[in-house]
Design a protein around this nucleic acid. Structure first.
Lengths: 224, 224
DNA sequence: CGCCCGTCTTGAACGCGTTCAAAAATGTGT
DNA sequence: ACACATTTTTGAACGCGTTCAAGACGGGCG
């Protein structure tokens, strides 16, 4: 909820609006579900929805933030039965896809604004930095305790780069119209392996020039 | 223009609307320029704009298509003074960035819909296939006559993969808020070199397994 | 009880993209 | 010249996300 009030009555109303919105988004899609529909289903006036959420997009944002919180224990559990980097990458991203699966269309509405970093709902905006940092910390962790030697120079940049990789997979999943998103499943499997292989190879002396160039690219893209 | 009529009078009216729209998009941005403004500036009624263009987005699409046509000779000229693959990649993409530069915001409006392949304005939609094919043909050409040995297996897939690479650069450019988009300039320079290097290395016997995996990834992403 | 103030609720209204029935302009055949 | 079909133009109207002035509620205080 956007309003930071704690009155239990208000909390409940906010949840009613969120639930009504998500139900309608799933049933008719984000664009077809109108704010008037949402308010009516929640049993409040149209304007009331705007007392709790500054915009229709903000409802999606709230869903996104709550989802991230709910996923934390799921991620912890998933990583327990995966040891090497390839498997851990796969598990970490897979957990998110499975969690978001019932609301894939909702996530699509969120990623629509990705092309505009000034937009508050962009995955790159300051408003989503907190979530981003939590995500990146997971990648730092699976890099740290996978028992693989990571070259010193790319070490600090790698978690951020893997987050980018994750966003790419999620983006692909969102637009993937194959049955059960089976293409994404294949992509994730092969891409996880490839990424792990590349990181392993990156330590080779032969690879030093290429690694340096790749590092430059990562630095430009992920900025300071 | 959307209407396929050829009456010279109608052609002129359509152009007046397109010009008015682009001028307003540049001056106030895509969202702030309303269809009423556009129609008024073009000297027609609001509804008239919809006789020539089915939607506001369609105006942007028309701009995009016309731009692609105008760019063809520019590309031809730019490739004339670039011999190796790295330089040609750089030139090919640079021409597009320079051409689109005055209307960067307009292009952003177009790429917003990229997350939805069902949307007619998505770069992946059937409606934009014609433009895409022309683009890909350029990549096929710079691969063909750069005098580099391309492994047989990836040969047919490489032009499509490079088109993807190009779209990534353009997307980055559109959201790049650094002064004069200097970050994109650096990115393009280093990325062109990296891509050329990777293609060169891909022929090495050692690289065969990695190349096969990369090929699988490309096949999944670019689909048939 | 009456009063007040902050929290919540309401529904009309605004500007937007878009649609559409109707009118005007233009062409075409006789 | 006229009637008729087609193309072009018009502006009111629709549904949407969003805003806002106005009101309803609730609890602390004299």
């Amino acid at each position: 909820m956007a309003a930071a009030k704690a009155s239990p009555k208000a909390e409940e109303t906010g949840l009613k609006i969120l639930d009504a919105a998500l139900a309608l988004f799933r049933k008719e899609g984000f664009d077809s579900a109108t704010m008037r529909d949402i308010a009516q289903r929640a049993g409040v006036a149209t304007g009331a929805a705007y007392y709790y959420y500054p915009s229709k997009d903000a409802i999606v944002m709230d869903f996104y933030q709550r989802s991230c919180a709910e996923m934390q224990p799921k991620i912890e559990a998933a990583l327990a039965h995966a040891s090497n980097l390839e498997a851990r990458l796969h598990e970490l991203i897979q957990v998110k896809l499975v969690h978001f699966a019932p609301n894939r269309g909702v996530l699509r509405a969120l990623l629509r604004n990705g092309a505009d970093p000034k937009h508050p709902l962009s995955p790159f905006s300051p408003q989503t930095k907190q979530i981003r940092d939590i995500d990146i910390a997971w990648f730092r962790r699976i890099l740290a305790d996978c028992g693989m030697r990571i070259p010193r120079d790319i070490g600090p940049r790698l978690p951020g780069a893997l987050w980018f990789f994750q966003m790419g997979v999620i983006f692909f999943w969102v637009i993937d119209e194959s049955p059960h998103q089976v293409r994404t499943e294949r992509l994730l499997k092969i891409a996880s392996k490839t990424v792990a292989t590349l990181i392993r190879l990156s330590g080779l002396p032969l690879m030093r020039p290429l690694r340096k160039t790749a590092l430059q690219l990562i630095e430009i893209v992920t900025q300071e």
